[in-house]
């Protein structure tokens, strides 16, 4: 019986394993291969050795994405809290409104923001000015916040709405006002939601290239742009090396962040 079940299990898992191998593991191996070879296919450390020259680009990407994540958290947490506290019917409407922009493709949304903020765009036309907004770092941060805010709100919202109603009552019975309930009970209990929200915003903002290209006006590069350009100009090996190091750094930071998550809640991805 047991044997039969495990056989059935492995049959059921086969497509998934096949998928994972073909589209996750194999591409990773290819990246690994390119990162450690030169353009003639010989083993080489030269790509990895050339990485320090990208440090300042990497720092800039990290800084911008940290700021964007912090803004997302500051905006997203109250929003998630409000949605979770409202009536079930309102909850449905509010979360749908939150999801609504995500029905439009990210590229189209970013492109439209560019049209809105541009020198001859809607804002400048209405104000009768020609402020330079596109091309600043602020515009890129704005784009990141706009594009990734739902990824911050949704996990926090799910986490808050899962908190037992008795907790709220117990807190107020024991003398907490609304504010101290929030700080002493709700925020600590929704920590796993915050951590997955932060992860889901931080990781795509570090590696974004489209937002910085359109809203940054191309006047500076983020690490995603650098990787993209390496691949487009055919320097596959350097591009692969940067991606590899990025992956490792993200993996490390996720592990560190998970340390702060509740171990029994299971938290997130890694």
């Amino acid at each position: 019986m047991n044997k039969k079940r495990s056989f059935m299990n492995s049959i059921a898992a086969a497509p998934h394993i096949f998928w994972a191998v073909l589209f996750i593991i194999l591409p990773l191996l290819i990246v690994l291969y390119y990162a450690f070879t030169d353009s003639d296919g010989h083993f080489s450390f030269s790509n990895i050795a050339s990485l320090p020259s990208y440090a300042s680009i990497f720092w800039l990407s990290l800084e911008l994405s940290i700021i964007a994540t912090a803004i997302c958290l500051l905006l997203g947490y109250p929003l998630a809290y409000i949605i979770a506290k409202s009536k079930p019917k309102t909850q449905k409407i509010l979360s749908m409104l939150l999801m609504l922009p995500m029905w439009t493709n990210l590229l189209i949304r970013t492109y439209s923001i560019m049209a809105i903020l541009d020198n001859g765009g809607i804002i400048n036309t209405l104000l009768g000015t020609s402020m330079q907004i596109v091309g600043t770092k602020g515009a890129v941060i704005f784009g990141m916040v706009y594009d990734f805010l739902p990824y911050m709100v949704l996990p926090i919202y799910t986490c808050i709405s899962k908190i037992d109603k008795n907790m709220w009552e117990a807190a107020s019975d024991l003398g907490c006002n609304t504010f101290s309930t929030l700080t002493k009970v709700i925020i600590p209990l929704s920590r796993s939601g915050i951590i997955s929200g932060v992860t889901m915003v931080l990781v795509p903002s570090i590696s974004t290239f489209y937002i910085s290209q359109k809203l940054g006006g191309g006047t500076f590069e983020l690490i995603g742009d650098t990787i993209e350009r390496q691949f487009v100009t055919g320097a596959l090996n350097v591009g692969a090396a940067i991606s590899l190091v990025m992956m490792i750094l993200i993996l490390i930071s996720l592990t560190v962040m998970n340390k702060f998550g509740d171990s029994d809640e299971g938290g997130i991805i890694v």
Binding site: S53, Y54, S56, I57, L60, L62, E63, L64, I66, I67, T136, K137, G218, T219, F220, E221, D225, T226, R229, Q230, T233, A235, V238
Partner: peptide, 22 residues
Amino acid sequence: VNTLWEDLKISGSTELWVHILS
């Protein structure tokens, strides 16, 4: 040329508030 291009993109793009805030 790729290196020079990166050089160009990095040059002059110091906005102090980004460093301070982050």
